[in-house]
Structures are given as C-alpha cells and as structure tokens.
Design a protein around this nucleic acid. Structure first.
Lengths: 107, 107
DNA sequence: AGTATACGCAACCCGGAGGTTGCGGATTGG
DNA sequence: CCAATCCGCAACCTCCGGGTTGCGTATACT
C-alpha cells in the first residue's frame, strides 16, 4: 500500500483513528496520553494509530521536552477527496451522456 | 462498524475495491466475473468485495437472467467527503482564529 | 436433452491489524 | 539526588479480512 491515497483511506477506516483526527482538528495539538484518556484503549494503541496517521501524512509530531506533540496536517485529505470526486464526476458525466444519447433503451 | 461513514471508508481502504469502483464509474454496469477478469483475484473474491461495497451503499445489484449486474451508486461518497471537509474546515478556521488572535504565544 | 456458463454458499487457510503487558530510558520537579 | 511522568521499543495474543477451493444450482445455448 505505497499509494498515498490508499494510505489515507486506510487511516480513515478505523473509528479510533477518525476520533483522533476529530480531536486534533479541534485542539491544535495533543499528546498520545491525552488522547488515550478519552478513548477506550491504552496509550500505546493510540501511539500506533498516530504512527499510521503520520505515515499517511495526516499528522506531524514534534518533541517538546519529555512529551511529543501531535498536530493535524489535513492536506492529504484533499487528495483523497479528489479521488472520490473523480469517481463521482466520471459517473455522472457518463450518466448525462447516456441520458442525452439514448440509443440502447429498454422500456 | 454500523456507522455509515465508517463503512464507506472501510470499503475504500482496499485497493481492489477502489479499482472496482473506478471500473464501475466508467462502465455503467458490470458482473463479478467481468471484473475478476481484470483483477488478480478470483470471482468469489470480487463477489465479496462487491458485497462490502453494497453494504456501504456504494453499489447496487440487479439480477438479469443468469448474471447479476452491479452498478455504481456514488451517493455515500458525498457523506464521506463531508466528514473530511468538516475536519479540514474546523482545522483551518481554528488556525485562522489563532492567527488573528495571538494571545497564548510561546516563543 | 445435454452441455456450458454464471452464480451463490460454505469451509477453510493465513497473515496482519488492533490491542495489551512489560520493560528501560529521558525529562521534569521537589 | 530521588521520585514521578512521559515516552519508545519489543514480545505476545487474538481475531477478522482477503483469498482460495469445492460444490450445488439455475439459466442459456444448440
């Protein structure tokens, strides 16, 4: 799964990871322990999720003293949305073409 | 994973499923065997993927004689895009607020 | 009627994702 | 200096998702 868009969708496929993203969207910065406090899993589990999000380019980490701060970097979401928009666009342009050009009808 | 948006992201997390969606976007209708012909997996694997896509609401199936035709229904993509747009929006509105209102600086 | 095609269902296999526990190593605070 | 945090690394467990094979069945073709 070296494909960047695939990494993003894979990251978004997990509910805990989505929660982390929502939390980071409203908080500017957070540590793994903070996030783990509001999730039903341990700190290490959250750390793994943050690693996955980081690999997808959705999160950046910076170390500040003894704690590592995670921060949202939502740019890759745009690429993923582009992919979806592309599928949808191709679908309904082809649909429009069929509507306008109704050769093979079956009433 | 009863949450509808979760189902969509989970569906999009698999490369073969994404390929199926792309194929259906450009083809109006296809059978599992057709799709399996252009993928490195068996028909049954594709059938499972189509079942997952159907559960996510991204695909509808209709039986025509001895073959079942699958068709793209891209509406749920919109909901997923909304979720992403929401995260991104919250992120950069808060960022704008911080830029305009720089009280708690830490240089 | 008989053969070929297309499907669904079920059993099974296997690897990896999500999670936990158990450490040891920095960093901060009294 | 010592204790309390906060983290990273590693081993381990469990389960389920993606995949296959095998078979039974319905529809189409000749």
């Amino acid at each position: 799964m070296t494909d960047p868009t695939g990494l993003v969708f894979d990251a978004l496929a997990d509910p805990n990871r989505r929660y982390v993203l929502e939390a980071l969207a409203s908080r500017e910065t957070a540590t793994a322990t903070e996030l783990a406090a509001e999730l039903p899993v341990t700190r290490q589990a959250v750390a793994k999720h943050l690693a996955a999000l980081n690999q997808a380019g959705l999160v950046e980490s910076r170390r500040e003293g003894r704690e590592t701060l995670y921060q949202l970097t939502p740019a890759p979401l745009g690429a993923a949305m582009d992919w979806m928009a592309g599928v949808g666009a191709e679908w309904d342009t082809r649909l429009a073409a069929l509507r306008k050009h109704p050769r093979n009808r079956r009433p």
